[in-house]
Each structure stands twice: as C-alpha cells, then as structure tokens.
C-alpha cells in the first residue's frame, strides 16, 4: 500500500529575517530538480504527439503536434479505458462502503479485537500481490469470477480498503466524540448517528480515501494480468502491457495510451491538491 507520512502544510521553518528574503536561487534549483524528475512525463507527452512511424526522429519538442497516436489509442484502447473506469468506480464504492463503518467502529467503539483488526491491516501490507493472485485465481476459477468486472472490483479493492480504513479512522480519531454523543443522547440510533452525523463530518477523509482508492484500482496491473484470461474484460494497464509486450513500432499510440491512462493521476495532483495533502498526512506510517 502507499501510505506516506505527514507532509504538514504547516509554515515553513523560519529562521530569522534572512529567510524572509525571497530566495529565488533555491526556487531555480528546485525547478531544475523537478525538470529532471518530470522529464519522463514530458517525454511521454512529447512522444504521444509525434507522427506515426517516424519514431527514429522523435524531436525534442512537439513543434508539429500530430494526434494520430491519440486516434489509434482511443480506437484500440478506448474500451479498455472504459473498463478501467467502471472497475475503479466500483472499487471506490465498495471500498468506502466497507471502510467507513469499520473506521468508525475502530475510532469510537472499544470493540474487543479492534487491535487485532488494526494489526491484520498492517500485516496485510506485507503480503505480496502475487501470493494473493495465485490463490484468487484458483478460487475465481471455481466461482466463475475470472474475466468478470465484479471479480476485478473485488480484487482491486484489496489495494484500497486497508488504506481507506486507516485514513478515515485517523480522521475520525480527531473528531470530537461529544458530537456523536450528543446525537446519540438525542435519540439517534447507531446507524442514524453514523449516517447523518459522522459521515457528513468526515467528508474530507472520505473524498481523500475515495480518490486514492480510485487511483489504486486504476493503476492495478497484477490482478488484471492474472485474473483475466481472455479479452472480454481488459483494463487499460493490461492493454499497455500487451502493447509493449510485442515489438513496438508505433510508440506514439503507446505513449498516447499512457497519457490517457495518466489522466486520473494528473487530475488528482492538480485539482485535488488539498486532499492529497490530507492523504499523505492521514495515512501516516509512523
């Protein structure tokens, strides 16, 4: 899983008046580091805009952008992108439906065995995906879940559910218990207090968990690879793998597909900045 520790958006370390000077030199250096780190992303976009078949002369800049790569990508992989979207949305729904009540129980009730559940979540992160896939393949074969969207939704949620539980629970831990108690004293049952008080108050953590769960399912490759045997259900990650598995002579369509498959990550980073910050804080590993 991909928890990360606190990136507190708190105030930067201030060390006297000297630090108040605008330190543009450091900014330039940071931009330089960023340029190196993001070069592959630039190269992906650049290569996706090159005309087909002239891969030997990929220019450093897409001065004459050519969209045939995208046309090919959408005609060949459009269905797979749709499959990925359906699976990811399904996984978000399933993960939140399972994780939110569990997080509530772990944060508010002194349920016996809560410690064991948390411990199991931690241990689950040590289990290699290939071990899970190996066993699931045989079970799915018996249950007829191979090559099915529900099968992949269930399996892909394994990436998101433990993370979602931890992140929502961390948030609920910080919520004043008195709010829920007040609701309970007013006569609200457990389910009503949860539904109409706890969930609305936890909105931000639910969005954060949902976004990351989406990304995990969208990025899944292992379950797509092992739990499908035909072309009936094919997420886009597997589509890309099939592209690059053979000799590639049309990199612009491969890169165009890669760009399309990166859109959720890019949207997440640009539009949902505050939720990413919350995600990196809440899922703290320490």
């Amino acid at each position: 899983m991909t928890t990360t520790a606190a990136s507190r958006p708190g105030p930067a370390r201030s060390s006297g008046p000297a630090a108040d000077r605008k330190n543009w030199g450091s900014t330039a250096l940071a931009i330089f580091f960023l340029a190196i780190m993001l070069f592959p992303v630039y190269w992906m976009v650049n290569a996706s805009l090159q005309p087909n078949g002239t891969t030997l002369e990929t220019s450093w800049l897409p001065l004459k952008p050519d969209f045939t790569g995208y046309a090919t990508a959408i005609s060949e992989q459009g269905g797979n992108l749709g499959t990925s979207l359906v699976i990811s949305l399904g996984s978000v729904a399933l993960s939140l439906a399972i994780a939110a009540p569990a997080a509530y129980a772990l944060a508010y009730f002194k349920v016996r065995g809560a410690g064991i559940v948390l411990f199991a979540i931690l241990i689950s992160q040590m289990i290699p995906g290939i071990v899970v896939a190996n066993a699931l393949y045989t079970a799915y074969n018996d249950l007829g879940l191979l090559n099915s969207i529900p099968g992949l939704i269930l399996a892909d949620s394994a990436h998101g559910i433990p993370f979602a539980i931890l992140i929502i629970r961390a948030f609920m831990n910080g919520m004043p218990a008195s709010v829920i108690e007040a609701a309970r004293v007013d006569g609200a049952g457990h389910i009503r207090a949860f539904w109409s008080i706890v969930l609305p108050l936890s909105r931000n953590s639910l969005i954060t968990a949902g976004l990351f769960t989406f990304l995990f399912a969208w990025s899944d490759f292992l379950f797509a690879l092992t739990l499908t045997t035909t072309e009936a259900v094919r997420p886009v990650t597997l589509g890309i793998f099939q592209y690059i598995g053979a000799y590639v002579n049309d990199w612009s369509s491969v890169m165009a597909t890669a760009v399309l498959a990166s859109i959720p990550a890019i949207i997440l980073l640009v539009a949902a900045q505050k939720y990413i910050a919350a995600g990196t804080t809440g899922g703290a590993v320490k």
């Binding site: 498959a261 990550a265 890019i266 997440l268 980073l269």
Partner: peptide, 9 residues
C-alpha cells in the same frame, strides 16, 4: 507525480 502514475505507464 512519478509516484502517482500507474506503474505500467
């Protein structure tokens, strides 16, 4: 960003 991209991408 590199960490958020699908690994296969």
């Amino acid at each position: 960003l590199p960490w958020l991209l699908p690994l296969i991408v």
